[in-house]
Each structure stands twice: as C-alpha cells, then as structure tokens.
Computed example of a mutant assay.
Amino acid sequence: MKKESTALILIFLTVFIDLLGFGLLIPILPAFGLKVLNIDEASIGIVISAYSFIQFIFNPIFGRISDKRGRRPVIIFCLLLNAVGYLLFSITNSFLLLLLSRIIAGIGGSSISVAQAYIADVTTPENRSKGMGIIGSAFGLGFVFGPLLGGILSEFGYAVVGYVSAGFSFLAFVLTSFLLPESLKIKVQPELQPQRKRKLIDVESFKHVFRKPDLALLISLFFVLTFSFANIYGTFALLGIQVYHFTDRQNGYMFGIIGLTSAIVQGTLIGTINRFLTKKNIFIVSSFLISLNLALIPYAGNFLGLAVVGFFLSIGTGLFQPTILSLISEVTSEQEQGMTLGINQSMSAFGRMLGPLWGGFAFEYLGYQFPFLTGAFFTAVIFLVSLFYLPRKLNWNEK
C-alpha cells in the first residue's frame, strides 16, 4: 500500500507540474497572437485546434508504445518535448513558429493516457476510480493556478510565461527521471496485438478497440461528455463579459471555483463516494448534474447564481470522469491498458477540438445560450443511456 501511495503521489506531482505549465499559456495565447504576431482570430483558432488534433493522433500511438516499452520512458520523453515546445513559444516571432511550438507541445501533452495507464497498473479495481481521480485533480489544480500565474507573469512579457512554462515541464522531467518507478510488468506480447507497421493514425488500434461493444460504448460516452463540456471552453468567458458584465478578475474567480471544486471532488472525495454509491448511481447522478447545470449557465442571473451553477457542474464532472475512466480500465485486459486509454484520450482530444469550433459558431450565429444548451442536450443523452441502457449492456447492477 505504501509503494502504491508513493507512486500515486509522484504521478500526481508529475501531471500537476506539467499541467501548471500548460495552464500558464491559457490566458495569454490569444492576446499574444493578436498583439504581438498580428494574426486574426481564425488563425488563433487554428493554433488552439492544432494542439488537440495532434493529441488525437499521438495519444493511441504513445499508449501502444507504453504497453510494450513501459510507461516511464514515454512520460519522460513527453515531458522533455513539452519543455522544448514552451521554449520555442518564448522565441516565436511568426504564425508558423507559433504553430510549430503548439504542435511540439501537443505531442508532449499526449502522455496523459500513459499516466492513466500508470494509475491502472498500480491500483486495484476497487481503488481505481480514486486513482483516476488523481489525474483529474492534477488537471483541475493546474487549470486553477496556471491561468492565474500566467496572467500575472504576462505583465513581465510573454516570453517570460514561455520560459516559466518550460521550467515547470523540465522540473517534472527531472522528478520523473530520478524518482518515478516503472509500473508496467513486462509480459509476453499479447496475442491480440500482432506486429504492425507504424502509421500516423493507427486505424487498426481504433478498429481493435471499437470491435468490443462495451469499450466502444464507454469511449463514445466519454467523447460525448468531452465535446459537450468543450463547447464552453471559449464561450464561458465571453458569456461572463458580454452577458453578465464580469470583470477579468471575476471571470478568473469563476474559473477558479470550477477548477478547484472539480479537483477536490476527484482528488479527495471520489474514494469516499464510491463506498456509498455504485458506479451505476454515480453515472446517473453525475450526468444529471452536468446536463442540468450546463443548461442553467446562461440563465444564472448574476455572479452568485453562476458560482452556484458552476459549483454543482464541477461536482458532476468530478464524479463522472474518474468513474468512466475506471470502467474503461476494468473492461480492458492488462496487456492493452495503454492502447485502450490512449484511444480514449485521443477521442477526448478530438472532442476538445470539435467542441470549441461548434461553441464559437453557435455563440456568434445562433445566440449565446446555444453552446451551453448543446452541451446540456448531449449530456442528457448520456443520462438516459446510463439510466436505461448501460446497466444491461455492462451487467453492472452489482457494481
């Protein structure tokens, strides 16, 4: 148990420090593109989408490599790539160089699925939801403190933000290199994974995973959730400014409330909740909370109302994400954890690419309510599937 706890603490620190570096760039990338590079909004959108698209390609590739070569070397390599990408951002003076820096950082950011596989390696099925919650907690805390720090550092110059981001990734690289043990028990090559030629998009891996109905359903649900929530990535701040007339500081507080609540739920409460609720009930409750509160966002009325809505929305996402990751891991063989979680993370990246594109279009051309109502509609579908279909499909009434 002590060895497991030490490994979980180390992987938490690794992901948190790395995500802190990523979070530093969130508030300043659009301003940097407009003010320094003089590029238009469409080009900025391409830069942001490129990061998620690259993760869509590389998540399953790194997942498969980690199944064969181990988790530790992949995580170390990706952290070093992240540092290089951030350093390149600091010296960027053109659109193409900015795009290249985000592509390199996107490849480096494709290690999250490997970190999830690491959690699956070192936890028992009973503790897996709690373990997966550690990744979500690291994400949440990185997105709370990163943007706040990035906004402060930008006053000293955009290059400083890049250098500090690179420094955080390099610190995570050093910690991992010296302290993180390998989690994968090397076994004979699984029979279901014949040797294949390397391809940019590993179509065979996708086919292999989606041939399994239970995995296909769970990964599809995770994709729908990610797409639904990604609708608000760019539009939530716009809503605060244009509809609720928030200041930048109030918007920052709102992001802090959402990120911190999600981090607390995933990092500390999910283990306790699992002792009182079955996974079936967690699915039902969390998808209902997400759907309801996404729908309420444009009608919350004021800062206090939106803070309450954001609080309950974060409880829903904080419960749902580690639970579905735990289920995906549980229905996957030990030899295919990296590949399967890589496919799942790849689909999640695809959702994070499509969500902001639709959300921005809907906000501008259909009305400010529509990105949030779109997310509410699709998560309502997840709620209905969880209530009536999923228990029979996965035989999880006893889980």
Rank of each mutant, 00 (worst) to 15 (best):
M347G: 02
L289T: 01
S348Y: 02
T278A: 03
L319S: 13
G301F: 04
I273M: 07
S329D: 03
S386Y: 03
I273P: 05
V308S: 10
L294S: 03
Y299V: 00
I315E: 14
F388Y: 14
S291E: 04
G338K: 05
G316A: 13
F350I: 08
T340S: 04
L313W: 14
L296C: 09
G342S: 03
E334C: 08
I273L: 11
T323D: 08
S333Q: 08
G355I: 02
Q369H: 15
L384D: 06
I273N: 10
L313Q: 11
E364G: 11
F372N: 08
S333P: 05
S287P: 05
S287R: 06
F383C: 07
F370W: 15
L304H: 00
A362R: 05
S314M: 12
I324A: 14
L366K: 11
A307L: 13
K280I: 07
G301V: 05
F303T: 00
G375W: 06
A307S: 15
F350M: 06
I284A: 13
P298S: 11
L354P: 02
S326R: 10
L327T: 14
A380P: 04
L292A: 12
G338E: 01
F276Q: 12
I324L: 15
Q345W: 07
G351Y: 03
F276P: 05
L387W: 13
A376P: 04
N293P: 05
S333L: 06
S286D: 01
S287T: 12
Y368P: 00
G316D: 10
F303Q: 00
I328R: 13
G310L: 05
L354S: 09
I324K: 11
G351T: 06
V385Y: 14
L292V: 12
Q369W: 04
S291W: 03
Y365H: 04
L294C: 07
Q335T: 13
P371M: 05
S286Q: 02
G338N: 03
L357T: 11
V385G: 01
L354I: 12
S329N: 04
E334I: 06
T272L: 12
V285G: 07
L292D: 05
F288W: 04
G338H: 04
L304W: 00
K280Y: 08
S314A: 15
N281D: 10
T272K: 15
L289W: 01
Q335L: 14
L313S: 14
T340V: 15
G310S: 12
I297F: 13
M347D: 01
L357N: 02
N293Y: 09
S314V: 11
F378N: 15
Q335D: 14
F350D: 02
W358I: 12
A362P: 00
W358N: 03
F288Q: 01
A362K: 02
L327Q: 09
L289N: 01
I282M: 13
E364K: 10
F383A: 06
V309G: 07
E334L: 12
T332N: 08
N302D: 10
I284N: 06
L366R: 04
R275P: 06
Q369D: 10
T317F: 14
G351Q: 02
F378I: 15
N344Q: 13
L296H: 00
N281Y: 13
G342Q: 03
L304R: 00
G351K: 10
T323L: 11
L277Q: 07
L325N: 15
S329W: 06
G338M: 07
F378Y: 15
